[in-house]
């Protein structure tokens, strides 16, 4: 039933067929961009690594061996050992869970909040718009890392507060974006039609306005993923990120940076992991943007 003919039909028989057709065409366009495909492949590979970490790992991520610290890569330790003699390969694998988990958590926090604030402000207008936008402005005007830092210091350092802190600094642009999109379609005919049919404002925002904003939001999210990883690493650098013994990549690189001159592989390996993850998300986001968000190309 699902064939490329069905998908590419210029006269779709149903809404579903039309929707799938659009997606398929987007995929075709996406596939033409080799870098984006590479990004997707690396991102997927990392996801799989995270999921299957216990199967792929060669050691216990927390097992210390003080007598065997800072060893170079070898057959026993593929990526060497860290400052407490733990296996770096294993920690990179388990770290993928934490780092990617943090990214997902931030996204899950930020995107709905930004979407809701932006859509509500844009659709309602008036005082609600003004209040929400002032709040957004305040958070935008804040030095970002400082806000995150203050927040983490106020809670206690750790993965949860790092996620919350990064989310706190990351939502305003989403609100702005969603608001701009909402303003663009607020007076469109189909919204007017829904309104005439008696839909409540909440229903309109949630069912009709928000979905329209989602593509540009997805693009933004994908492009932001690398910033999230990097901010987490920055918090780690200042001692306030995920806390050891958790093998979060940013924290690993931050705590191991003092070895960069003599035992360079200890910081460089998580560095490569971060680099690959960021790069793949960036390439993926760039590719998605070309496809999903043609006006912004």
């Amino acid at each position: 039933m699902i064939s490329s003919d069905w998908l590419l039909s210029s006269e779709p028989a149903s809404r579903r067929q039309a929707a799938w057709g659009r997606r398929y065409q987007a995929w075709l366009a996406f596939r033409r961009n080799p870098l984006a495909v590479a990004g997707l492949a690396v991102a997927l590979a990392m996801l799989l690594m995270a999921v299957f970490a216990p199967l792929l790992a060669t050691h216990d991520p927390g097992a210390q061996n003080l007598a065997n610290r800072l060893q170079p890569p070898s057959a026993a330790h593929w990526f060497g050992t860290d400052e407490l003699g733990r296996d770096v390969w294993t920690r990179i694998l388990y770290g993928a869970r934490i780092t990617l988990g943090m990214v997902v958590a931030v996204v899950l926090l930020v995107a709905p909040v930004g979407l809701l604030v932006g859509c509500a402000a844009g659709y309602a207008g008036g005082w609600l718009d003004r209040i929400l936008m002032r709040v957004t402005d305040v958070f935008l005007a804040f030095p970002r890392l400082i806000l995150a830092l203050a927040f983490v210091a106020a809670m206690k350092p750790g993965v949860e507060s790092a996620v919350a802190a990064i989310a706190l600094t990351a939502w305003p642009p989403y609100a702005r974006l969603a608001r701009a999109e909402t303003l663009r379609i607020r007076d469109a005919d189909f919204i007017a039609a829904v309104r005439m049919a008696g839909a409540s404002p909440w229903r309109i925002v949630l069912r009709h306005v928000a979905p329209v904003c989602i593509p540009s939001l997805i693009v933004r999210v994908t492009l932001d993923m690398s910033s999230i990883i990097l901010t987490a690493a920055g918090l780690g650098f200042l001692g306030l990120g995920a806390q050891p013994p958790l093998p979060e990549w940013g924290t690993m690189i931050a705590t191991a940076r003092r070895f960069i001159l003599d035992q360079w592989w200890v910081p460089v390996i998580p560095g490569i992991a971060i680099f690959l993850a960021s790069l793949s998300f960036n390439l993926l986001g760039d590719g998605l943007r070309d496809v999903l968000d043609p006006k912004q190309r």
Binding site: L230, G234, F237, I253, A254, R257, P267, G271
Partner: peptide, 26 residues
């Protein structure tokens, strides 16, 4: 657009944005 130059520029620019800035600095 779409050519190798486009792709290399993209890769080069994104590379700068894919490493923690303290690693880049070191």
């Amino acid at each position: 657009q779409g050519g190798w130059l486009d792709q290399s520029v993209r890769l080069f620019c994104l590379a700068g944005h894919s490493l923690p800035v303290f690693v880049l600095g070191l």
